[in-house]
Design a protein around this nucleic acid. Structure first.
Length: 557
RNA sequence: CGGGGCGUAGCUCAGUUUGGCUAGAGCGCAUGGUUUGGGACCAUGAAGUCGCAGGUUCGAAUCCUGUCGCCCCGACCA
């Protein structure tokens, strides 16, 4: 019966065996021309969603491909020709810039200043702190020569043997800067009056990773690293906790990404630290992402680099240290926390573009009227001060007046790029002095508001942006809570970590050996020993030994 | 670094088994026209050192060796 009503469908089906696309493309055609028929034919799938499938794999189909597709099609980054390194494209970099600005202000508000230390670190510096050396030695890029010469006989260049650096001169590209910085602090710190020293640097670092993944783990990445020196242990520990709280604030209030906070187990801490605090988030595939770390370094680096100061009592003492960092990995976390199968979803406070206005017109006189209204509306939105909420940055409104694309194409494109609010403005709206608003976090019709009066649109848009910021957080938190379990039996642990995955709150005997065994059997590691865990003694999930409280296990990125 | 898969136009891929005419398609791109409220259509056109380097051969995208890169699974990993 369907065939007789619409011969095109039969054609589409017969092509299926030859090429899947034929059917898909063909059904898109059918939809436009025979709207009543599709309902029984392709059921709920709308034409543009089928087309989207050409570009983005769904999360259910292939989560890691979905992640890569989003990055590619939202124009965030490319793989480069350099092994393990990425090119961050303007739209991706704009997100990082937003993060930098937000974080930098939080750092400044807590008394920190920025400085810059060298990219090259003398190898001998790295050797000075035993645990630190061991932690980083395996993944260093090393500078051994300082000149290239033509290869004998052939094309190409080679390091000049005469320009080889002596063992003592060899440099590593910084994997982190504790050593060069503490070597410098030796000269800056003499008296307790020089403390605390609260310094941050924005820079790149290199870690020679075996397997890389855009934004989440690359050989070179961008980050900030704070390095502070204090007169007392108490002050340094407070600093480490304060900066973790800064990270939590940024993750939750700006990125709308809920995080657990707490110390790492000894097995997971930073090499050279007394302890490491972390923020830990859950991605949509229920794996954990370490999103930031803050370390209490004790006097380890002060001792290694002989950083002593004279106290008020006139005694010579070693300084107490912290370091803390977040990286472009946050961009990966942001993508995996909020995005959907249509593309990128960005929380408004970090969106490089907040509002896209899509004008719709056919006739020249319509074009004039619509563009005028669009520009006036854009000006009206820009005129609303958002102050602190957007870090005193202007709200960015784009009037998409490109004429080579149709409105439908633009709708999809702005969705793909994660613009929080889209305005649709055409002749029908102009007649009513109104417009249509669509919010990115609610896909389809439910996310659209029709007939919003133009005069009130700017304030309505701001309301939507603000509500979107909180609802993205709530949605992410709901997902995390839905995949967090208290687990008490080992078989249950093994089964849950496999399917559906998530955060497993389980008792642990506190030993490295047990942690390693659990990791070996299940690939789950201790992500965090949450500050807010309930007071509850118990028995270790694996060994049955006494446990002080539950820790959070998960598979991690 | 181990196992598997894959590198052909910006993207997705066909062609490789069995070497042989001038290397193809769709999408995208450019130009012109018709279009424009959820990814428009027609016409014309541009675009490739077949990942790279050697080798075998009269002849290599195709066979051989090496190498680089990507994806998946391990190992590794603030």
């Amino acid at each position: 019966m369907l065939k007789s009503q619409c011969p095109d469908q039969a054609l589409g089906i017969s092509r299926l065996g030859i090429r899947a696309w034929s059917l898909i493309r063909h059904s898109a055609f059918v939809i436009r021309h025979f709207p009543p028929i599709i309902q029984c034919f392709v059921t709920p799938t709308r034409g543009h969603e089928v087309t989207m499938a050409e570009k983005i794999k769904t999360r259910a189909e292939d989560y890691s491909q979905w992640y890569l597709d989003i990055i590619k099609h939202a124009n965030l980054a490319d793989n480069s020709d350099v092994r393990g390194c990425m090119v961050i494209k303007p739209h991706g970099y704009a997100i990082w810039e937003k993060m930098q600005r937000g974080l930098d202000r939080l750092f400044k508000d807590t008394g920190h200043v920025n400085a810059y230390f060298p990219l090259f670190i003398p190898k001998r510096f790295l050797e000075k702190e035993a645990e630190h050396v061991e932690g980083f030695a395996k993944e260093c890029a090393i500078v051994t020569h300082h000149r290239l010469i033509p290869k004998p006989g052939g094309k190409g260049l080679m390091p000049d043997p005469k320009a080889e650096l002596s063992d003592d001169e060899q440099l590593v590209i910084r994997p982190t800067s504790e050593t060069i910085i503490w070597n410098t602090y030796k000269n800056w710190i003499q008296s307790y009056r020089d403390l605390p020293l609260l310094i941050n640097q924005w820079c790149n670092v290199v870690r020679w990773e075996m397997r890389t993944r855009l934004f989440l783990r690359t050989a070179e990445f961008l980050w900030q690293e704070g390095h502070t020196a204090h007169a007392t242990q108490k002050e340094a520990e407070e600093e480490a906790h304060r900066m973790l709280e800064v990270y939590r604030t940024f993750a939750e209030d700006w990125m709308a990404m809920p995080v657990l906070t707490g110390p790492k187990s000894d097995g997971q801490k930073f090499p050279g630290a007394i302890y490491t605090l972390c923020i830990e988030a859950m991605m949509q595939d229920h794996r954990a992402l370490q999103a930031g770390t803050s370390h209490f370094l004790g006097q380890n680096f002060a001792k290694a680099f002989d950083v002593k100061f004279q106290s008020a009592e006139g005694k010579l003492e070693y300084a107490w240290a912290t370091s803390w960092g977040v990286s472009t990995r946050l961009v990966g976390g942001l993508i995996m926390t909020h995005s959907d199968d249509q593309g990128l979803v960005l929380p408004p406070r970090l969106a490089p573009i907040h509002v896209a206005i899509v004008p719709i017109f056919k006739k020249p006189e319509e074009k004039v009227a619509v563009l005028k209204a669009a520009n006036e509306l854009a000006a009206g939105i820009r005129a609303i001060p958002l102050g602190d909420w957007l870090n005193y940055d202007p709200i960015v409104v784009k009037v998409d007046d490109r004429e080579q694309y149709q409105p439908g194409y633009k709708f999809n494109e702005w969705e793909l790029r994660g613009v929080p609010v889209r305005v649709e403005l055409g002749p029908k709206d102009i007649e009513k002095n109104a417009c249509v608003l669509a919010r990115r976090d609610v896909p389809g019709k439910e996310g659209k508001e029709m007939g919003v009066p133009l005069a009130g649109a700017p304030t309505r848009i701001i309301e939507i942006l603000k509500s979107m910021q909180t609802s993205l957080f709530e949605k992410a938190k709901k997902m995390r809570d839905a995949y967090s379990y208290e687990v008490n039996r080992w078989d249950e642990f093994k089964q849950k970590i496999e399917e559906p995955g998530g955060f497993l709150w389980a008792h642990w005997d506190g030993t490295r050996a047990t942690e390693d065994r659990i990791a070996a059997e299940t690939k789950a590691t201790i992500r965090c020993i949450p500050f807010n865990r309930p007071q509850e003694k118990g028995k270790c999930i694996l060994t049955g030994e006494p446990s002080e409280g539950r820790v959070v296990f998960a598979k991690a990125y």
